[in-house]
Structures are given as structure tokens and as C-alpha cells.
Design a protein around this nucleic acid. Structure first.
Lengths: 343, 343
DNA sequence: ATGATTATTGACAGCGCTACCACCGCATTG
DNA sequence: CAATGCGGTGGTAGCGCTGTCAATAATCAT
């Protein structure tokens, strides 16, 4: 019985198959695994599809194959410049592929993350990219039950759920402080905002390095759960100056705080680095332009996104990486804001 | 004949219907239009769904209903802070809804945009949010044929494809220059990078205001297609100083350029605003913190995203807005960097 | 009271694609 | 020469849901 519903004018696989003189199944195979066809038919299907302008219906494909070509990405913030670079890597890396990205914002909440994972599970994504390694037990259980490639990004840890791309925030912070200590700085302050897991680990790196040099003093540490900003950098720095007027250097957990600190120094006529050295984290573009140029830790954010999404896609297609955990490292970029103290 | 394929353990609508003692159709209706059910059955279906933990299969729904619950969003850049705020608005606005966002990056290319629209068309999105009003004729044709709500964001124009949320970049730039002229600045430079359509319109506003005051001089204009950055701000400003050493103010088309200009002034010991005034655009958070605080144009980026996605969702559900074009305006935030010249 | 209208509900028939299995024909093997 | 294997192909039968429309029950106007 002919149905009333119009067929939406869409070209279907059946039409392609008919034009190519093959069965719909063969045509279908052409799109998923062209190698399986004999060269002759492969070409015939290819031509027919092009001629008719065929575009596969993703919903039908998902329904019939019981899997999607969607990769879920969980990010804690859209505002943070760090993540915009990661996202650019993810989107660039997947742009020419068959996969589409489903992006969600956890707003730095692991409970929100859990809820979003639950939602993702119902959609059976082909793969998943999640930020950090501090998932709730529940989240981990969901992830493990999902039976798809999963990449944790931004940091490294001992127990990957599946794969990992990141670097050691602890080590990076340790390297920063070691650098300052080598340069004979002694009263090195710590400025932290938001205090998400990555920032916590930077604090650990700071603490380790300070303790090892017997320079540790809790009064040097200013940390707030409030979101980070340039303005907040100035505020925290002012706070630090009050609590420890004798500081000779400041390690800011990100570049915005460092810039805010620089501005506050300018406001108070504090010479950088003569009076106080400043080091940031992430090496955003503006750090090199500041007056004086600001020392920072370069992190490979774009590569992190790009590597993560490539690993995910490869794993979906059965090409699992030789090493499931990739350390993208960091690089201390030394600029004038941490110039040697007194030679 | 029973099929071998396992049913993936997923709860189906049929099971919910069985438990509730209704037909699958009735259960289906519950999820799309609960009002249509009698209160008794509504409750029974609701309980059954909760009890079984039912989650609808989106692929099956999309296939059967021939429409999706996906809203496509086309953005020209992920790096630009402006868009991260817009995106945040879009994602926040859609977070609790049934719609999911499909984000793509056009990399400021209208050809890329056209290609991506073609891809979107094949997926029959429920709605679309596109950046700007400079689509190619082909893109416009695709958009018009798509038969779904479309919101153009970031700027305003005379011929909306469907709906629009934005503000006049031309007017905003005109207001900036008028402000500077009122303050007796005369040799006002223009610094522009990337020169995308929005920036072009800011240049037009600048040009109009300068001509009207008989202050126009093409040597005051420095523009490059190269992407924008803080460093680029310094470079362009240096270039401007060379071509027009007598400038007394600079209008930068965005805040990064303004910050770069400020740094360059600091480097050259140029007093701001005594020697040269600086104005930026967008009023990013750091503008208020800089030394001196930098004048800028506040734009409602988050609201723009949020309004656009709300309008889209409303229109999808048949609630078309009273006014299809919404002007979110701008606000000139005057700070010390454009303090009055000589009183 | 009677037909007409409206609110609820269900049966049917797919949406466009692919998993599964069977089959064909050719080459290889003992 | 039969048995075996295998690349290539097609038929069948849905994936889980909803559009259409008809049937029924409830309500209304005249």
C-alpha cells in the first residue's frame, strides 16, 4: 500500500543501489567499508552516489547499526582560554571525519559531570573525551560500563579509565618554583583561584618544591575558590602583600592572575622583576607582550585536544594506540619577569 | 521469527506502555505532548517510565518523525573570547532543554560556511544559529530552503533570513569616535586586524564620524587581515606611530589590540592618556584592571547567545517572537585611558 | 433527543538503514 | 575429484519510534 507521507525528496540508498545496479546492502557497504567491494562495483556505487547527490541519513544509520558517530566531550568551562584552545584542537581534528562532536559544559562540577555522563550513556556515543581524572565513583562506573573509547585529558594519573593525554601539573609547578629558587628567590608567594583539581596539583608542586628548599611558609599561599580573572589577580596579590610584605616572587596558577598581579605592581610602583618576580601558567599569547614580558609555562593545549580526538577516533575504528597514556609535557618559558635576582 | 540480535538491554517504549497498560502510541504521546493524555494515563505512563528508567532513543525518534532535536551553531572562531561568551550563553540556554547543540567552526570563511550548511541540511536540524549577515548567495539559498528557524547573531542588517540578535557595530564605533572628538582629540588612529565583516563595519563607523568632523585622514588607518592578538596590537600601533607620529588617540577594534597598544606605550614611555588615549572594543574583563583602566565598548555577548538560542527553541515550538530582530545594544564604558584632553 | 463536534486512544505501516546469515563461485588442498 | 575455504554478494527482517487516520467515548448545540 502506497503511503501518503511524502518521501521528503531525499535520495535514499535504494536509489543509489538501483542506479549502480547492485543491491542496497552492497551500496551500504560501500560507505562503511569500501575495501570489501570489488573494484568494479565500488566505482559504480561511487558514481551513482555522486550523480544523485546522496547523503546518508544518520538517524537511520544509528538506529539500524545501534551505534552513533557522535563523540561526547565534557569540558568544565567555556570561558577559560585554556579550553578554547583544546576545543579548537578537538574540532579541527574531527572536522574532516565522519564523527560529530557533542560538547557539554560541566561548570567545574563533578556532580554535573555525572549527570551529563548519564545523559550521554543513553545516546550510546562512539567515544568520549572527559576533562581531568577526578570523576566521582559513580561517573567512573558509568564510563566503564559504556564500552566505548574514552580519553581523559588535561592531566595524568595512575589509573586511566581507558586512555589519557595530558601533562603533570605537579611537575610543571615544581619546575617553576625550582627555577625561582635557583635564581635566589626565597619568599615565593602562591596565588590560586578557582582551585580546580589541576590548580590543586600545581599547589602541591609548589608546596613540594618550597618544602624541599626549606622555604615553605603557609602565609605565602593565597587561594580562593572564586573564579579566576585578571581583576582577581590584582586582588589576590594585594592580599598576599598584606600577609607577607617581604615576598620577592609570585607564582600565579594562571596567566590571568599573573597579568592582574603585573597591573597591581604597576599601580603600586613595584618594579618587576627588581622588587618582585612574576610567573604565570599556560603561556597565553599576551604573556610575551607584557611589560616586562612575563615568564610562564607553555602547555600544549591545541595538541592535547587534537591528540585526544585522534586517539578516540582511531580507537573507535579498532586502531588502539601503542601507549594509552600520552604525556604532552610542558615548557618553562623564561622571560624578563623572572630575571635573575642579584648576580 | 525471533531475531538473534540482542536487544542491548535497553528499555523500550513498548515495555513502558505494557507496564502502564496503554498502547505504545499513547506512551509515545506522553513524551511529546503530555497534555493530550487523560490525567490518569498520564500518571501511569510517567510512573512506568520512571520505574523502568526509560530513556527515549533519539535516533529512532529522529527517523520516525523525520526531524531532529539538534540545533546547529556556526561560529567563525573558537579562540576569540567574544565567541566563548556567546557559546556559553548558547549552551547555558539550551542545557535544560530537549535540544542539543551541534557546533561547527567556519574559521572566518564564508565558503567553509557554505559547505557546513550543506552538511547541516542533510541532517535536517530543528534550528540554526549563524554568525553574521554576510552569507554567500548560495548559503542564503540553502538556509531559506531549510524550513527551520534561523537566527543570525552578532550584528544587525536590513534583510534577516528569519530572525536576528545583535547590535550595530557601525553605531558603536561611531559613538566611540564621537566621544573622543567631544573630548577634543583630533588625530584619532584606527587599528584593525582580521578585518572580518563586523570589524569592517566598525571601520565604517570610524570613517563616518571622522569625516563628519572633518578629521578624516587615511594615514590614520592601519588594518591587516592577519588574525588579531595582543602582540599584533603592539605591532600595528608601532606602525601607526611611524605613519602618523602626531596621533593623540587610538581606537582599537578589539580589546586585545588595545592591550597590545597599551603595552607598546609602556615600552616607549608614552603616557596614556596624557600623550595618547586608547579605546578598545568588547570590554573584556581585563580592561578595567589595566593601568590605566581602558575605555571600551561593552557588548552583551552572553545575552546574545542566550537570546538567540531561546528564540530558536521557541520558534521551533511554534512560539515565534513578536519582533524577529532584536537589538541588544552596546554601552560605551569610559575609563581613564580616554580621560579629557586639556580642560 | 439527535446529530455534530471534540477529546482520547489505538492499529497499522513504515522512516532509511544495516546485522545476520545464506549463498555463489572460484581457488586451494589432500 | 570431493572437501574446504573464502571473498563477494544478496535476501530477510527488523532497529525503536511516530505519522496518519480511524474508532470510540464524551461533550455540546440546537
Amino acid at each position: 500500500m502506497a503511503r501518503a507521507r511524502t518521501s521528503s525528496g531525499r535520495v535514499r540508498l535504494t536509489e543509489v543501489a538501483k542506479l549502480a545496479g547492485v543491491s542496497p546492502i552492497t551500496a551500504s557497504r560501500f560507505f562503511r567499508n569500501p575495501e570489501a567491494l570489488s573494484p568494479g562495483k565500488r566505482e559504480r556505487v561511487e558514481n551513482a552516489a555522486r550523480q544523485l547527490g546522496y547523503v546518508p541519513d544518520l538517524a537511520a544509520r544509528a538506529l539500524a547499526s545501534r551505534r552513533t558517530e557522535v563523540i561526547g566531550v565534557l569540558i568544565p568551562s567555556f570561558t577559560n582560554n585554556v579550553f578554547s584552545d583544546v576545543l579548537r584542537g578537538i574540532y579541527d581534528g574531527s572536522a574532516e571525519s565522519r564523527y560529530s562532536i557533542q560538547l557539554v559544559n560541566t561548570h567545574y562540577s563533578i556532580l554535573q559531570e555525572e549527570k551529563l555522563l548519564q545523559l550521554f550513556k543513553a545516546q550510546r556515543p562512539a567515544g568520549l573525551v572527559v576533562t581531568g581524572i577526578n570523576q566521582t565513583d559513580e561517573s567512573r562506573a558509568i564510563l566503564e560500563s559504556m564500552n566505548c573509547p574514552i580519553v581523559q585529558i588535561m592531566e595524568l594519573g595512575p589509573e586511566p579509565i581507558d586512555m589519557m593525554v595530558g601533562f603533570s601539573h605537579n611537575d610543571a609547578a615544581f619546575a617553576v618554583i625550582s627555577h625561582l629558587i635557583e635564581l635566589n628567590f626565597k619568599r615565593i608567594g602562591f596565588l590560586g583561584a578557582r582551585m580546580d583539581p589541576r590548580v590543586q596539583r600545581r599547589l602541591e608542586g609548589y608546596t613540594d618544591a618550597m618544602k624541599r628548599a626549606s622555604l615553605y611558609d603557609p602565609r605565602l599561599i593565597i587561594a580562593t575558590p572564586v573564579p579566576t580573572s585578571v581583576t582577581m589577580g590584582g586582588t589576590l596579590f594585594a592580599d598576599l602583600l598584606m600577609k607577607a610584605p617581604d615576598i620577592d616572587a609570585v607564582f600565579c596558577v594562571n596567566d590571568d592572575l599573573a597579568l592582574g598581579t603585573l597591573f597591581e605592581c604597576q599601580r603600586r610602583q613595584i618594579q618587576v622583576p627588581e622588587d618582585i618576580a612574576i610567573v604565570g601558567f599556560n603561556d597565553l599569547e599576551y604573556m610575551a607582550s607584557a611589560v616586562p614580558p612575563l615568564t610562564s609555562v607553555r602547555t600544549n593545549r591545541y595538541d592535547m585536544g587534537r591528540t585526544a580526538i585522534t586517539m578516540t577516533m582511531d580507537a573507535i575504528e579498532g586502531r588502539r594506540p601503542a601507549t594509552p597514556v600520552i604525556d604532552l609535557g610542558y615548557e618553562l618559558i623564561i622571560r624578563r619577569s623572572s630575571a635573575p635576582r642579584r648576580l
